[in-house]
Design a protein around this nucleic acid. Structure first.
Lengths: 331, 331
DNA sequence: CTGTTAGCGCTTTCAA
DNA sequence: TTGAAAGCGCTAACAG
């Protein structure tokens, strides 16, 4: 391995001068600089970022903790994509750490990123509770921001969308179309996001003077497969409904498959809607009415919060209704 | 920041002993060890991986270079997912670097990962040519493996699937169903993957005694949008065909939209197939016949190659035909 | 403008 | 089994 010392010797200068020539903070005589560049070219020298980072005590990297289970699916793609792109825009590398299957492992992932001395850490939690996250943030020396979870005690360390509000917006649209028998497919058990969406559904129903019918509630687990199973279960119950709202787009697509197999036409026989505005839904036939989650804005916000000084007031983002073909008035 | 020295002092031992207690390579008296652990707990000490890496001259990380343009889409998700999961299985962190929009930027991304002293680097190239990749590998001190590109000169530094063979397999299926007028939607211009799939299409046709009709060739760019546009263009040509093979599933979904809008039914009026076995296609209605690309096996293979010693013979993987509902015999 | 001299926090000989 | 000391490769005062 060729080091800065080799370059220095070859160029007939000191390590410090090579360092200065490379970092450009201090002026180095042109002629000397040329000699150094020449030596670098000859030796094929490549600065050791590790040593540099240690000397500077900073790494130019930001960490992202996500959980395995979220990895597949378009949602993860969008999250990682924007995280990577935005990090690079700030000149930082993105380091991934898997939260695996438990709160402890999510904690370990954070710890790991801290040992790596990431400048900042983003976490899209799955198992850690709000209390646990609060504690972690309290004890953390490095900036942390939590994505998709509201932390009342740490308004500046979280960005999220108001899922209940989004759900109510969606329901308002569905009710306005004339639907009253609306089924709901829940997300995975214990998911705050799922609970908020369900709460919005029930809230909107009650506000419209309709008591939620337990017969119209089926349980899913976010995946398309689970949506398909939920759809079949709902149909098997033989209760009347004119519309199905699924906890996310993936499940909505699964539900659609179940409906189509049962000979139902979308949206003539049954309307269908989801959440997340995934690519899937956009090109599905019929295209899927959904709620757009502003992932890019959220990540952008998160990274700005982490890397830029000062206050960043709004931590709550709004979901936006995307009307498409899968919802029509009931017959 | 609390360092190993703070812990040592508090425990009344030397830095070296703390280090040994932590790394477990050398035996430390139990009683002393307990005191050290105690001190660590009290101080909240967290080893600095940076310093550790520098001292050991290794980082326990593997780098992945992918290009921005590939980021969105389920393909990227699958790639990153398996890369991250497999890296972690080998106890390594995954570091992402964006190849951006040019060969030079892909090169820069590799350089960056090298400066970071990643133990190994995976690259899913978009702009770099085989020659350029060969050169990079020749000059590289750190292990590199190229994904989805065949490098005849570096059979042990590449993993790929035989796209032409896959395409021929797909065509054999289509022809066997009785289709003879089969349209093809190409991938983005200049993409080796796209070219291989096109070559397979033409090859299979000729072998069946059918001269490829330029009227049945339309150009796409991998995205669903481009597939939609290609579909519309094809329909506008008013030439007869009974089947469309798209360069990937995303485009196939776009093509489907164009067909459905034109009042065509799938697969009764026109059969449709793609490549990649994306989630999209699996739950589309009708579900999409496609070629499964063994991403997991490839990444697994790539990481094994990088991290384990010894030979890993096969670098070529086989795509697998997935028959589903979107292909039926012509009327 | 440039060289010298200390570190950054940890690991690892080499002695004891 | 443990401590002292010498690095890992680079940056950053401090002189000159």
């Amino acid at each position: 391995m060729v080091t800065i010392l080799d370059v220095a010797r070859l160029a007939g200068v000191s390590k410090a001068t090579v360092s200065r020539a490379l970092n450009g903070k201090v002026v180095v005589r042109e002629e000397v600089k040329a000699r150094i560049l020449q030596a670098i070219a000859e030796t094929g020298y490549r600065p050791n970022q590790l040593a540099r980072n240690l000397a500077n005590n900073k790494t130019n990297s930001v960490g992202l903790v996500v959980t395995n289970g979220l990895y597949n699916g378009p949602f993860f793609a969008s999250l990682t994509y924007h995280a990577a792109t935005n990090s690079e825009m700030h000149g930082r590398q993105l380091v991934l750490a898997d939260g695996k299957h438990s709160a402890q492992e999510e904690r370990d992932a954070i710890d790991l990123l801290m040992s790596l001395r990431c400048e900042a850490i983003m976490i899209y939690p799955k198992y850690l509770t709000v209390d646990e996250l609060d504690t972690i943030i309290d004890n953390s020396q490095t900036p942390i921001v939590v994505i998709n979870r509201e932390l009342p005690r740490h308004r500046n360390q979280c960005v999220f969308v108001d899922h209940q509000q989004s759900s109510e917006t969606m329901m308002a649209h569905l009710l306005a179309q004339g639907h009253t028998r609306i089924a709901f497919v829940t997300g995975a058990e214990g998911s705050p996001t799922g609970e908020k969406r369900l709460a919005g559904y029930q809230q909107a129903l009650r506000r419209a003077g309709i008591e939620p019918d337990p017969q119209l509630l089926v349980h899913g687990a976010w995946s398309t497969d689970s949506g398909y199973a939920a759809g079949r279960e709902l149909l098997a119950r033989q209760v009347p409904f004119t519309c199905i709202l699924a906890g996310n787009d993936d499940m909505a697509i699964g539900v659609a498959k179940a409906c189509l197999e049962a000979g139902l036409r979308l949206p003539q026989d049954v309307s269908l809607a989801g959440f997340d505005d995934s690519v899937l839904g956009k090109y599905y036939h019929p295209s899927l009415t959904t709620i757009h989650v502003p992932m890019e804005a959220m990540i952008c916000h998160a990274i700005d919060t982490l890397l830029m000084p000062g206050e960043h007031a709004v931590c709550s983002h709004e979901g936006e209704l995307v009307r498409r073909e899968s919802v029509a008035p009931p017959k």
